[in-house]
């Protein structure tokens, strides 16, 4: 089964293209693919519990795994208690793990 790691570096507040990665993730999941979104840089801004997440919420509901880079979270003062329970902080190693495992990795 095809696996995907979609790296989202853009936030939905400033970017006019905030729907692309969640939409792609949801569509791939609907086609039976295993999809993970990794939020990095300003892409972690929607990770706060009370943040407006737009289509990212729909991707979560569709069964997409959403991770957030721990360094990016810490850099922005987003502590463990601030993060939505559906989004998991991780080390950036997940990118290299994915690439080494041959997982299709796309940066947005």
């Amino acid at each position: 089964m095809s696996k995907y790691l979609l790296i989202e570096s853009r936030d939905p507040y400033e970017s006019g293209d905030g729907d692309f990665i969640p939409s792609l993730a949801a569509q791939l999941t609907a086609k039976g693919k295993e999809v993970t979104i990794l939020l990095v840089q300003n892409g972690v801004l929607p990770a706060r519990t009370n943040a407006e997440r737009g289509k990212l919420s729909q991707a979560l509901e569709a069964g997409v795994t959403v991770l957030a880079d721990s360094f990016s979270l810490r850099e922005r003062g987003i502590g463990d208690s601030d993060i939505a329970p559906t989004i998991r902080p991780v080390q950036l190693d997940v990118v290299i793990d994915a690439m080494a495992d041959g997982i299709k990795t796309i940066w947005h």
Partner: peptide, 12 residues
């Protein structure tokens, strides 16, 4: 911000 993230990947 992409530069630091890129170099973090290279470091790993």
């Amino acid at each position: 911000g992409r530069t630091a993230t890129f170099f973090r990947m290279l470091d790993i």
